[in-house]
Design a protein around this nucleic acid. Structure first.
Length: 493
RNA sequence: CGGGGUGUAGCGCAGUUGGUAGCGCACCUGGUUUGGGACCAGGUGGUCGCCCGUUCGAGUCGGGUCACCCCGACCA
């Protein structure tokens, strides 16, 4: 008889607690013994690797190449662009010395005061400065443009409060940096990369996103425009899942990146930068998972199908092994990742629960009963539905089922999100309802004052001016002034 | 940096008026089990965050200190 055990806090009881427990128990990551830092465990990293591979291919299709730049940035670089330094100054880790020595009692080490750096080095919070300092040497002519580079790396931002995947002091990401000869081309690139992100979020992660442009106050430090994809989590809060910035000539001017155009005239290069981080893992988890654990889209699941044998003795196991082998081979041939878990140290019930916790999309169960009847039990993780099917032709049906699941979880997330997007004209009503989460489409007069007031009174922020929303003029619900467009307002992570 | 809280086994916790530390899970060994998180028996594992003090004696009382967590301000 199974004991009453709480493996996971109920999602509805305490969303934050549920999320944290899920990340740890599904074996994705854990808090490191270093302030605000995270250890990504093999299972979590396998998902991240899959994301990386898919994204990287998409970048390359648009002509981007990978490169790598230093972790340490001289302090002077960071201060070259005024807004940029202001935006990041409060959260920079600084390297001041380059040597340790044993202390006087010889039972520890201290920083050697003699090894103080003349100029401090900043651990990159983002790499615009060091990359544009390099671009200066690479760009001389319009023939050198566009320059399209990306780097996969870690960055560090000394955040006050951290949460696994959503906000950690150190995080893994990809940052693309491009230089262009014209404003139009740079703007087009920034929008193009946002589309790449949106496509990835919706078609691979099955996470529906709202695309849009940030308000002035929410812009990236040093950008002229910041484009964003915003996803809705199951508690109704928004998660900024990826951003693409049009940086104008700010960095070109700050780092004196000039090129000679066709008319032999010097011009400053136009810039973009764009990035997504391990925060995407948080979006993935918080969009699909349920009280039984993770739900992974087949496109990103490290194991897409798990097969579990039921047996009473070695003889029975051997028969199941024989029946399973051709199925595994066939599925692999179809490019489907399969795990046959015939380990004898865990009982079937444990395996069922464990693979559900880890979000494996499809489970096949085969026992003596099935061998007699030529059947197999198929369970899909998204709906938890079980069905006994004929063993014959099972591989093809599993492949279809994986496609179904990918579609279904996207639709489910989209239906949920769309049901929680509201148009709102009344500020008092807004104040009441925004507490319960959801996205609010409201007219905004475009002033930072109104924006600040909403934030102060409701903790909600303008997520973006959404694209693809039919815009009609109206009245700002806060100030009563005329407004040209509706903006997306929500509480966010 | 403001407000609140917690530090006892790998994790979650209990520990009474001060008397020399315990429970559940996990782990190890053996056996029985195996179609939804098995059971029985035995076992390993602790400078009670750290320092100072009170005391014959401190996980427990007092002072200090450090760390972490939650709520704000900041953020991908």
């Amino acid at each position: 008889m199974a004991k009453e055990l709480d493996f996971l806090t109920k999602r509805s009881e305490d969303y934050s607690k549920w999320y944290n427990e899920l990340v740890v128990k599904a074996d994705l990551a854990e808090q490191a013994d270093v302030r605000g830092c995270m250890v990504i465990k093999p299972y979590g990293y396998a998902i991240w690797e899959k994301m990386q591979r898919i994204l990287d291919d998409k970048f390359k299709e648009t002509g981007v190449q990978n490169a790598y730049f230093p972790l340490l940035i001289p302090k002077s670089f960071l201060s070259r662009e005024a807004e940029h330094v202001e935006g990041f100054a409060k959260e920079c880790a600084v390297v001041t010395h380059y040597r340790l020595k044993t202390n006087e009692t010889h039972d520890g080490v201290i920083v050697d005061p003699a090894a103080k750096l003349e100029e401090e080095l900043i651990i990159r919070p983002t790499s615009e400065t060091i990359i544009w300092n390099t671009f200066k040497n690479w760009i001389h002519s319009y023939r050198d443009l566009p320059l399209l580079v990306n780097q996969w790396c870690n960055v560090m931002r000394w955040e006050m409060r951290t949460r696994l995947f959503l906000r950690t002091s150190e995080f893994l990401w990809q940052e693309g940096h491009t230089a262009h000869a014209t404003r139009e081309e740079a703007e087009e690139r920034a929008k193009m990369m946002l589309k790449v992100y949106a496509d990835f979020a919706e078609n691979c992660m099955a996470v529906p996103v709202v695309q849009g442009v940030k308000s002035e106050t929410e812009r990236f430090a040093g950008a002229l425009d910041t484009y964003t994809i915003e996803a809705m989590m199951q508690d109704g809060k928004a998660l900024q899942s990826g951003t693409s910035h049009f940086l104008g000539q700010n960095f070109g001017k700050a780092f004196e990146v000039q090129f000679l155009n066709r008319d032999n005239q010097p011009e400053y290069a136009w810039a973009t930068s764009w990035g997504v981080s391990t925060r995407l893992m948080g979006a993935l988890i918080m969009t699909h998972s349920d009280d039984n654990g993770l739900v992974l889209p087949p496109a990103l699941a490290p194991t897409q199908v798990v097969i579990i044998p039921i047996y009473k003795n070695d003889e029975q196991l051997q028969k199941v092994d024989e029946a399973v082998a051709p199925i595994v081979a066939e599925l692999r041939q179809m490019g489907i990742s399969v795990k046959y878990d015939n380990a004898d140290n865990k009982r079937p019930g444990f395996k069922f629960a464990d693979y559900e916790l880890k979000g494996v999309p499809v489970r096949l169960v085969l026992g003596a009963r099935d061998l007699e009847n030529g059947t197999v039990e198929v369970m899909r993780r998204d709906t938890l539905e079980k069905e006994t099917q004929r063993l014959e032709g099972i591989a093809a049906r599993v492949k279809d089922l994986l496609g179904d699941i990918q579609q279904n979880i996207f639709q489910k997330a989209k239906t949920f999100r769309d049901a929680h997007i509201y148009e709102c004209e009344d500020y008092e009503e807004f104040k009441q309802r925004v507490k319960d989460g959801g996205f609010f489409l409201c007219h905004w007069d475009g002033t930072p004052e109104t924006e600040a007031r909403i934030k102060e009174e409701t903790q909600a922020t303008i997520r973006c001016v959404p694209f693809g929303v039919e815009q009609t003029p109206g009245t700002d619900m806060v100030s009563g002034k005329p407004a040209v467009a509706r903006v997306l307002i929500a509480r966010s992570y």
